[in-house]
Design a protein around this nucleic acid. Structure first.
Lengths: 116, 116
DNA sequence: AGGTTTGTACTAGCACGATAGTACAATAGT
DNA sequence: ACTATTGTACTATCGTGCTAGTACAAACCT
């Protein structure tokens, strides 16, 4: 893999969300290419000092969002360009999340404890 | 008082938020007029079968938002038109909340357990 | 002043989400 | 077949937000 991910457990934002968004962005922006293999669940768990379950949750949701494909014994891979629809949805998702965050911030109803 | 409020504890949306938004809307739309007295904390608690604290929280936040004025021994009253700025903010707040809800719904990241 | 009505403060319970510990299942490669 | 490597499932813990129980304080009224 080429990308290195980082999370901040004290940011108030759940780390699984931080990681999920980072990967989504990386894919949307091309820093992660289609077909490229993502770090192993257990490898990432070690690197980020997290539990495998936390990583697994991220990968599971990313698979549900059709951003990656994952299977036991093989690993997790960025979905090929074969699904432009999925890619499109991913971009939309990233964009709308940014907007959502902006709205939340403006309204001071952030989901973390630092809100307002 | 003239308005009767209702909440649904099983909707997944915190009842204190439901009530807060209802009152905000009622004020913004004029169903609650400036100077008008709101139901007593304890009266509303009885009517809605809620704890006084839950109502108190709503009133406290509404006071912070400058929508109502409240004081012990007297009661809680809708703020007079003397503060157009506050009224304006209230309207904005109501509007942006609606938008926020729409965004949340669209993204399927609702705050309640029913989300996607 | 005394009692009544109002909001408020302190505390606890409860549910839910996020994360961790650990054991399991599926695939790949030899 | 065996073994290593991958993701997965089950369970527990911990923190946090929502609501409740109850006692308190402030203001009004006679």
């Amino acid at each position: 893999m080429s990308a290195v991910f980082t999370v901040d457990p004290r940011s108030g934002v759940p780390v699984y969300l931080q990681l999920k968004e980072q990967i989504k962005r990386a894919v949307a922006l091309g820093s992660l290419s289609p077909g490229e293999q993502l770090p192993t669940v257990k490898q990432l768990a070690v690197d980020l000092t997290l539990n495998p379950n936390t990583i697994a949750r991220v990968y599971r949701e990313l698979e549900h969002d059709e951003v990656i494909a994952t299977s036991p014994g093989k690993g997790s891979f960025v979905r090929s360009n074969g699904q432009p629809d999925a890619l499109r949805k991913n971009l939309d998702s990233v964009a709308s999340r940014s907007m959502n965050e902006a709205v939340r911030e403006a309204k001071g109803i952030g989901l973390d404890r630092k809100g307002v």
